[in-house]
């Protein structure tokens, strides 16, 4: 696809900037930005040490946003995320001490290692866009973007995220290991000063907010909407699927597609956008039947199969 389309210049600058730090992984970078533009959140499912933190920090630095990191542990409490009110004896009143969630770009590391109580505190904040501490509702800063990571489910000592919570993430993706040559490049760069420190910001938060507005104006034709719904409905009737994609999933797919189209300088969504994004947007929203899992099927395969079979609209 890159063959025919160039990125929106401003987006291209950001992506280039991030790529000074993250080697390869163009898709991951692009997808993160899609989520950022669409106002969604990303779930990274990967082992430690592949550059998740680096990615988020680079993203934050590039957009000149306030970056916060929360390391989730089994003993983390909800107030450790949202912040607490402490009695200020000098002032004679309770004073709100903001938690780490009060930032623009949040890295929620190993989200599945904490208790469901703490997880839900974060997820509610993600959904509502504000938090309530001691009866006071406080808005979260704009933009608000959470990139959560979780270790693959098989690892010991984890609290898997319930399906309802997973639905709150716009995209789920993996970073994966770098290729041989890329890893050598990683080593070469690690010899010098950590490049992340030298990274300059490319756009401002205000610019980012206006981009988010523009994304909403990207036109989605009736035929594309039908296409999205067709894919989603097929996921519900698929024989290997126990629970299909919710209507929230359809909306998510459309919003992501709008962001993706905008990034590529288009004012309208084309089926290619939907096809590219469907596995990332939909696969964490379906639950496979046990027998399908037993057959070694994974959700990504099912979505890919559905997309391959759904007729693409070629005329209005």
């Amino acid at each position: 696809m890159e063959r025919y389309e160039t990125l929106q210049p401003i987006i291209a600058r950001v992506i280039e900037n991030i790529e000074k730090v993250i080697i390869g992984k163009r898709d991951v970078t692009t997808l993160s930005f899609v989520a950022l533009l669409a106002g969604g959140h990303v779930l990274l499912e990967d082992v430690p040490g592949v550059g998740k933190t680096m990615l988020v920090r680079a993203l934050a630095k590039s957009v000149n946003a306030h970056f916060k990191r929360i390391q989730f542990t089994p003993d983390l409490l909800p107030s450790d995320v949202t912040g607490v009110s402490i009695y200020n004896q000098k002032e004679m009143q309770f004073e709100y001490k903001p938690g780490p969630i009060m930032g623009n770009i949040i890295l929620a590391d190993e989200i599945n290692r904490t208790s469901p109580k703490t997880q839900s505190a974060l997820l509610e904040a993600m959904e509502e866009g504000n938090i309530t501490v001691d009866g006071v509702t406080r808005p979260l800063p704009r933009p608000f973007f959470v990139m959560a990571t979780q270790n693959p489910i098989e690892y010991e000592g984890t609290y898997p995220l319930p399906e309802a919570q997973l639905d709150r993430f716009l995209l789920k993706m993996k970073i994966g290991y770098p290729t041989f040559l890329e890893e050598i490049e990683v080593l070469s760069r690690a010899e010098k000063v950590p490049p992340i420190d030298e990274l300059q910001s490319v756009i401002t938060v205000e610019e980012l907010l206006s981009l988010q507005q523009k994304v909403k104006d990207v036109y989605v034709d009736e035929s594309i909407k039908r296409y999205i719904v067709e894919i989603v409905q097929r996921s519900r009737s698929n024989e290997s699927v126990y629970l299909g994609v919710s209507p929230r999933g359809s909306v998510a797919l459309m919003k992501a597609a709008q962001a993706y189209a905008f990034m590529h300088g288009r004012t309208f969504v084309i089926p290619d956008d939907v096809q590219f994004l469907a596995p990332y947007v939909l696969s964490h929203r379906i639950i496979l039947k046990p027998e399908a899992k037993f057959d070694g099927l994974v959700a990504e395969d099912i979505i890919a199969k559905i997309v391959a079979r759904t007729p693409v609209p070629i005329q209005r």
């Binding site: 084309i270 089926p271 290619d272 096809q275 079979r309 759904t310 007729p311 693409v312």
Partner: peptide, 23 residues
Amino acid sequence: YLSLLRHLDDYGLKRKNGQTLRQ
């Protein structure tokens, strides 16, 4: 354009159902 698609299909370049126009 649609007629061209038919010609290409008849020529032997088949478009799969799930293939987008760009692909």
